[in-house]
Nucleic acid binder design. Sequence first.
RNA 1: GGAGAGGUGGCAGAGCGGUUGAAUGCACUGGUCUUGAAAACCAGCAUAGGUUAAUAGCCUAUCGUGGGUUCAAAUCCCACCCUCUCCGCCA
Length: 425
Amino acid sequence: MLDPQLLRQDIQMVAERLTSRGFTLDVTAYQKLEAERKAIQIKVQELQQQRNERSKLIGKAKASGEDIEPLLKAIANLGDTQKQAEQVLQTILSQQNEVLSSAPNLPDPAVPIGKDESDNLEISHWGEPHSFDFKVKDHVDLGAALGGMDAEAAAKLSGSRFTLLRGGIARLHRALAQFMLDTHTSEHGYTEVYVPYLVGPEAMYGTGQLPKFEDDAFVTTDEVPRYLIPTSEVPMTNLVAGEILAADDLPLRMTALTPCFRREAGSYGRDTRGMIRQHQFEKVEMVQVVPPAMASAALDEMTGHAEAILQKLKLPYRVMLLCTGDMGFAAERTHDIEVWLPGQDSYREISSCSRCGDFQARRMKSRWRNPESGRPELVNTLNGSGLAVGRTLIAVMENYQQADGSILIPEVLRPYMGGLEVIGN
RNA sequence: GGAGAGGUGGCAGAGCGGUUGAAUGCACUGGUCUUGAAAACCAGCAUAGGUUAAUAGCCUAUCGUGGGUUCAAAUCCCACCCUCUCCGCCA
């Protein structure tokens, strides 16, 4: 959520920066609401004050045995007036809140203005795409030939956008996840957490999935709905909801391996082949909760932590700075890491690391006690994939394929594969 | 699923429907004392919103959440959520 104070002080600036993200803020409408809010709130508070004062008088009078009838008469219809005013205020506040809760975060000034992914900026790259002296296959063909990747079997059970893995491929998938978790916990200072895969609406609201992106999530039909997490960013970040953290507690670094569930509504024709875009996929996620002053450095570090995984796997990639039009709802700055996929002859997103400023913290009411001011202030939150396991599996298969269709196992993964060096027939 | 108990400030824990934003203890901050520390003593210490130059003052709200009763609700009523104990079931 944006800072309501900022909207009072400089709504034009806010509107402009939101426009660069493709969000239109109706300035006149909001200002009108704000003026109404102010007037009615003052009125409500005055009425409440009157009621409080008179109630106290009645209390005193009664205690000293005086007749309270005249006092009661004097406030006969104050209650109704007050209730009406309170209702009006409620309506205005909820209208205001509707606008505020569906407005995306303000982009960092350094983020390039742009419409879509074609305006993203490459900020670095690592490794060179490997050249093959045979005709490369994509992961679908490789997987099918090895009998390790079966979309049909999954479709029989669950429909499209699911994949079943078997044998060595399934193990490789698991090995990747374990390797990532171990690296982040032992080398990058993250604490592993195991989290619920179903969360309540408040948690989804806290990180920004609700109310705007309800259609992207799977929901249970219970009386109190639960949402299947689209990423473990949701449970991990919301761990600090409502908390006032001590300065000593920060920065908080957490990592979790979880499945992620996404409806993928609105992406019907896209990436229908293979394991790129699924309703269910595993992801190792990194989350950091930091004092605002540390946020920028933390994003670079976190991006480095994701990169480290790819480097250890010797997979070529590039890092992109997302433009305003391509960033997620809660982000003020996002680094996407795109891995080279020989089967697609292109770079594809495998990680997304975002700095969210106090946007999520304001929604979650997550604060820390700043020693300088002595007061509770909003924390900053960051999240990043480290990495999407399914896509990493694809990348390993396609980059490590051999002429005979077998897959060489990257050295760092061999300890996780019982020493196995190659997956073949 | 059945029976019961309970949800109050950073924590623990009081609170006959009336001047209670809330006793007390611990923790924390400042001070006195001390060579220093501890102890002891004194003082301070919630969050958010409004107004304001002000993180001064004043006002409002907040005792799980949402409704209700009342001139007045932490205190009474209803619903929901959560926690704990016992029984049943279960990976």
